[in-house]
């Protein structure tokens, strides 16, 4: 996927027209460890920027995923029901979580690009 934008909470979005594909970064999946269950939202749900959009259960703990942009859920990754470990194996590809129709594409532009996110990770 091209042109990924990252939040400080380690979510990414990839914008295609007015639809954003949302997932968690490779750093985030490596921090979580083995993922065993993912609770995804219902299609049609409206999510405000910064609000919980999914919950990821690793062997050790449950972690909330916050949406870095506002929008309406138009699709969820149904493969994750059977194979949640896709998020570990391919977080930026087949391990995507949710597609959102965004109200304000400008919200994506305010997130970090690859270089800024790499720099941010070095400060952690």
């Amino acid at each position: 996927m091209s042109d990924l934008r990252y939040s400080k909470d380690h979510e990414y979005v990839a914008l295609d027209g007015d639809v954003a594909t949302l997932g968690i970064s490779d750093y985030a999946q490596s921090q979580l460890g083995d993922i065993v269950f993912i609770e995804l939202p219902d299609v049609g749900r409206k999510v405000a920027k910064g609000k919980e959009i999914a919950v990821i259960e690793s062997v050790k703990a449950a972690s909330e995923v916050y949406s870095p942009v506002s929008g309406e859920v138009v699709e969820v990754n149904s493969e994750l029901g059977e194979t949640p470990a896709l998020v570990n194996d391919d977080p930026l590809g087949r391990g995507w979580l949710v597609k959102l129709r965004v109200g304000d594409p400008g919200e994506c532009a305010s997130l970090m690009d690859d270089a800024a996110y790499s720099g941010f990770l070095k400060t952690l």
Partner: peptide, 9 residues
């Protein structure tokens, strides 16, 4: 992601 779940130094 919640900050707490990401290992802090």
């Amino acid at each position: 992601m919640t900050e707490l779940d990401v290992a802090t130094p």
